[in-house]
């Protein structure tokens, strides 16, 4: 069938495989972040990634390798600002985020010739993903999903009620550091797919969509992953057939899923 014709192309196969793994990662991690009112951490860290990518392009080093440690440091920086400096979470994200974007703008303004590459990172293009990038995405996604499964009870308990979690012997600071580092890694992985500008959408929207259905925690995670993967796969097909930018198509699809979920909730309340 013509609709499945894109599957004959190797670059589409690569995009679907890598995209699905990253979607599962973003949408499960996103549920924890949204419920802890840290939704905008993805947005903040993507701005740090912007600064890091600019540096990478300036130094002619593959931006992924530069962004990885810098974004993780940014994630830990936000955590320290919240814990030690007693800065409110949203303000801490704002501080680190604006530092990242300011650095990126300064570096870009002093550079010559790499603004086109920077544009690619800003808006992403999952269809141009290489074999090495597929492998890296799969490896990191598998490790991070493994972390979420391994620390599932701790993450759930802290997200639900930090005080009681502490009285269960959970090392809150350690688990929070793991969560923030995982978020940083996820942002770097996802920016290649949907771009720096839209990465937070993949962390937030599938989670918020799944929250509309009034399910228990495990089913919320499963539904969030499902809508994330569906948006990536359907987004790739639509962008191929309609010649649309893939990242933006994926994000818009996520918005439509959210609208559907919200409509379901309203109908359920009225019935």
């Amino acid at each position: 069938m013509e609709i499945f014709e894109p599957l004959n192309h190797a670059f589409i196969q690569r995009a679907i495989i890598a995209g699905s793994f990253i979607a599962i990662l973003c949408s499960t991690l996103g549920v924890f972040l949204v419920l802890r009112r840290l939704s905008l951490i993805g947005d903040g860290l993507s701005h740090v990634a912007f600064g890091a990518v600019s540096f990478g392009l300036l130094l002619k080093v593959y931006p992924f390798y530069v962004a990885l440690p810098i974004v993780m440091l940014g994630a830990l920086g936000i955590l320290k600002l919240i814990d030690r400096a007693r800065v409110y979470g949203d303000a801490a994200i704002g501080i680190v985020s604006s530092m990242g974007i300011a650095t990126g703008v300064i570096v870009a303004s002093k550079s010559r010739g790499f603004n086109v590459d920077l544009f690619n990172f800003l808006f992403g293009n999952i269809l141009s993903i290489s074999k090495t990038e597929v492998f890296t995405s799969l490896l990191f996604s598998a490790i991070l999903i493994g972390f979420i499964v391994f620390f599932y009870n701790e993450l759930l308990s802290i997200t639900f009620d930090e005080e009681t979690a502490r009285a269960s012997g959970i090392k809150i600071a350690r688990i929070n550091a793991i969560l923030f580092i995982m978020t940083g890694l996820t942002v770097v992985l996802a920016m290649r797919m949907v771009g720096i500008m839209l990465v937070s959408a993949l962390l937030i929207i599938p989670s918020v969509t799944s929250l509309q259905f009034g399910l228990g925690f495990k089913w919320t995670l499963i539904l969030s992953s499902f809508t994330g993967v569906l948006s990536v796969v359907a987004g790739i097909f639509i962008s191929f057939h309609a010649d649309l930018p893939s990242g933006a198509t994926i994000v818009l699809l996520n918005f439509f899923f959210f609208a559907g979920g919200y409509a379901y909730k309203i109908l359920k309340i009225k019935s």
């Binding site: 759930l156 639900f160 009681t164 979690a165 269960s168 959970i170 799944s210 009034g214 228990g216 925690f217």
Partner: peptide
């Protein structure tokens, strides 16, 4: 240790968790 903190009113009323899942958290340690 079993612990019930004071501020249960600060719990997020939209938290997607069943009664079973909440009680299960008491067995975490």
């Amino acid at each position: 240790i079993g612990y019930l903190p004071q501020k249960s009113s600060t719990l997020n009323p939209h938290f997607p968790v069943t009664v079973w899942e909440v009680v299960s958290m008491g067995l975490l340690s």
